[in-house]
Design a protein around this nucleic acid. Structure first.
Length: 198
DNA sequence: TAGGCGATGGTCT
DNA sequence: GACCATCGCCTAC
């Protein structure tokens, strides 16, 4: 076992299809903890994410469709990428049904595939810091605006179901100023790869 | 170890 | 012109 790993990660399960995302974002979000997310074979296990829905003001879609957020208003199972603070890219998975404009923000991965590639891109050695934040993981996986609107079940994107139900913790979302009270942040209990403790 | 803060640019009002 | 779904460096303790 590698020194920084909390537990031997389970083998990835079956590929997740778009239909997986055609449910309430509050059902999809906890079900994604433990899933394996890869871009061009590089990535890891989802250990932290947040749910956003257009009925609450923290969501990009709250004020209706714009040029930036149009992917959120499309069908579920697609990737919405946006620029954060003018510096970082952040990745979301669109959920529910077309027009529902809900999505989950992927915040942290436990790196399992393509460690050397991620270390080179991040200019870091510490495995715990490679993907421990939304801006970090997009850098490690080389995700940019170029991936905006891509389907989650077609190469180069790959998403695999977990094979066991993990212990999940919840909390309030990070870095927002509106609807701060909603406990829509989900994490893998005890993971050392979170952006912040719960 | 925790907190302050600068970098940097798209989006919306 | 203000607002950010962030990060990492730098201090202070």
């Amino acid at each position: 076992m590698a020194p920084n790993r909390i537990a031997s990660p389970q083998k990835p399960g079956k590929p997740l299809k778009r239909a997986f995302f055609g449910r309430s974002v509050l059902e999809v979000a906890p079900d994604l903890i433990g899933a394996t997310f890869l871009v061009d074979g590089v990535g890891g296990i989802i250990v932290e994410l947040e749910a956003y829905h257009h009925t609450e003001p923290a969501a990009h879609s709250f004020n209706g469709p714009t040029a930036r957020n149009q992917v959120m208003f499309g069908p579920p199972g697609f990737i919405y990428v946006y620029r954060s603070y003018g510096i970082h890219w952040c990745i979301n998975f669109v959920c529910e049904k077309r027009g529902s404009a809900s999505a989950v923000l992927i915040r942290a991965l436990e790196p399992t595939h393509g460690l050397a590639t991620m270390r080179r891109r991040r200019k870091l050695h510490d495995e715990r810091l490679l993907c421990s934040g939304p801006g970090k993981l997009t850098e490690a996986l080389a995700i940019t605006h170029a991936q905006n609107g891509l389907p989650l079940d077609v190469p180069p994107i790959a998403l695999y179901a977990r094979t066991e139900k993990p212990a999940i913790v919840t909390g309030v979302r990070i870095g927002i100023t509106k609807a701060v009270e909603l406990p829509w942040r989900y994490g893998l209990k005890g993971s050392k790869f979170l952006s912040r403790p719960f």
